[in-house]
Design a protein around this nucleic acid. Structure first.
Length: 529
DNA sequence: TGTGACTGCCC
DNA sequence: ATTCTGC
DNA sequence: GCAGAATGGGCAGTCACA
């Protein structure tokens, strides 16, 4: 734990990725194997299920630190991070206990079904026994999202540096639903066991938004285009006489999409498809919301299966005949994919994401401009000769989404952010006019620069009308242009509408609030029923 | 038994 | 998802 | 160009509590 705490501190002190990678690689070199395994798990988003609610933790911390709860809350508002707040408030201790990272994680895991009293005793013992640095890390481990300023990508790079194994090989080995309880460091990293890999997905290739006009991409003949479907990314593994479906976040979602079991009979063993899961009816895609009802479910009722049948629109073939096709150029992978799909009977819910025919860029622009009518989000562009890479990178795959819709809205509430935004008002609620009243309809936080947030924070302090906990009602006055990708009716909001991906595009200092948009303007943007 | 707060997943 | 920022 | 940080809405699930 001491070495891990040191690592944490060095990562926290720099934002230089090269320094982070070196520090991590050095840690991988010296740490015991089981600690390496836990570090890989934590830095690849495999934090164990939350053990203690933040409410409990606040109570125990306030008690231990002998401060009233309100003072802890106020401190948290200033510090912006619960784990750090608690570490700062706890009485100084001469703790010298030196458990390893895996000692701590294994002990915590064993508490998963314990009573609160036992958890409380364990947490308090650690608070008392650990040196201050380690206490902060311990708190990070038992609170929410574990962030160390290094994400999966840099961790993989560091592990590559420490082991000499190719980064992309490592990225592949670290995929799937392993946990430190189910695998050893050796089996995960050094000599992956083939029998354990039958369900293992390939790392997903992700696209960036195109930055300018597609004309910059050169010869349209080098590119393939298809619709950007508004569904859920899925990788279908057909191996070892079984099938598995993975989401982009590496969740196994096989049970949520039972209709794809049909692939067992019709897709040959040793095949991996990449595509988009879509609710699909009468030869057209259904809204994303239909699909979302599937996710996170423990069981899928018959009614849901019937009301929103799902298909996989396949757009890539990553493996065929047990052979990894990722190095192949897209053109060849697509040719092979087309054959695989052609061999399926019509009732098998796997289709081809059809390539869009376009002679030149203006022709594709015309297709894109009608994408919303078809229920898609725009088009994707993929370079014909490109291999299937991993992660999000620029160059070969681009999304060319529809232009967002925008409205001008009035800020009516402001709230401080967390972390590096802890002392800034960065999180706003916006309203539009309904007659002569302002109706709140969305929140937004991004799109402004730090300098603008600074100015607005000063303004908020001077223009607060009322406070509700962390939220301030402010003088309605500032107008912002809000952009969003979609708009729908909603029962949850007073305004009756809800936006998809709202963000601020600019502060309309030129616009008086009387000229902000109206609820009627928003309703006019709703799709035809 | 219903509700609201919270979490973690998708986008 | 999105956006901005630092390297 | 990459990587990180901080945040949007909806849904299903869980848990505390009325």
């Amino acid at each position: 734990m001491r070495a891990f705490a040191d690592l944490f501190r060095s990562l926290d002190q720099t934002s230089r990725t090269s320094v982070k990678v070196s520090a991590l690689a050095a840690y991988f070199d010296m740490a015991p194997e089981r600690d390496r395994l836990w570090t890989i798990a934590l830095l690849s988003g495999r934090r164990p299920k939350r053990l203690i609610s933040t409410g409990r933790l606040r109570d125990w911390a306030a008690e231990t630190a002998q401060v009233p709860l309100w003072l802890l809350e106020e401190s948290y508002a200033v510090v912006g991070d619960l784990a750090e707040t608690i570490a700062l408030l706890l009485p100084t201790s001469g703790g010298t206990s030196a458990p390893t990272l895996s000692n701590v994680m294994d002990e915590l895991a064993a508490l998963s079904n314990a009573e609160d009293d036992e958890k409380r005793a364990t947490v308090m013992r650690y608070w008392n026994d650990l040196p201050p640095d380690a206490r902060l890390v311990f708190n990070k481990l038992i609170t929410g999202g574990f962030r160390m300023g290094v994400s999966r990508k840099l961790m993989t790079r560091a592990l590559s540096k420490a082991t000499g194994i190719e980064e992309s090989d490592l990225a592949h080995r670290l995929m799937g639903n392993w946990t430190p309880q189910t695998i050893s460091y050796a089996n995960l990293v050094l000599e992956p066991d083939a029998s354990e890999q039958t369900a293992r997905p390939y790392p997903f290739y992700l696209a960036y938004q195109i930055e300018s006009a597609p004309e910059d991409l050169g010869d349209p003949g080098d590119w393939m285009a298809e619709y950007k479907w508004d569904g859920i990314r899925g990788q279908l593994i057909r191996r070892g006489g079984d099938w598995h479906l993975w989401s982009r976040g590496e969740e196994l979602i096989t049970d949520q999409f039972p209709e794809l079991a049909a692939t067992l009979d019709h897709v040959p063993d040793g095949t991996v498809l990449d595509g988009e899961l879509l609710a699909w009816q009468d030869d057209a895609p259904r809204p994303f919301a239909d699909l979302q009802k599937r996710l996170g479910r423990k069981t899928v009722p018959k009614k849901v299966l019937k009301d929103a049948p799902v298909v996989l629109l396949a757009y890539d073939l990553l493996e065929f005949g047990g052979k990894d096709l990722r190095p192949w150029p897209l053109r060849s992978r697509r040719d092979a994919l087309t054959e695989v799909i052609r061999a399926l009977p019509p009732d098998c819910p796997v289709r081809l994401s059809d390539p869009l025919k376009f002679a030149d860029w203006p022709a594709l622009a015309a297709i894109r401009s009608k994408a919303r009518d078809i229920g898609t989000e725009g088009v994707m562009l993929k370079r014909m000769h490109a291999p299937y890479l991993d992660g999000r990178r620029k160059g070969d795959w681009w999304k060319w989404k529809l232009d967002p819709m925008t409205v001008d809205a009035v800020m009516i509430y402001a709230q401080a952010g967390h972390g590096r935004r802890a002392n800034l008002y960065t999180d706003y609620t916006f309203a539009v006019w309904d007659g002569d009243t302002l109706v709140p309809f969305t929140k937004a936080y991004s799109g402004l620069t730090d300098a603008e947030f600074g100015k607005i924070t000063a303004w908020v302090r001077k223009n607060t009308l009322e406070r509700f906990g962390p939220v301030r009602r402010v003088t309605p006055e500032l107008v912002f242009e809000i952009a969003f990708e979609g708009i729908q009716e909603s029962r949850r909001h007073k305004s009756g509408i809800t936006l998809r991906f709202p963000r601020m595009v600019r502060w309309r200092q030129d616009k008086p609030m009387a000229e902000a948009n109206t609820l009627a303007d928003l309703r006019a943007l709703l799709p035809e029923p």
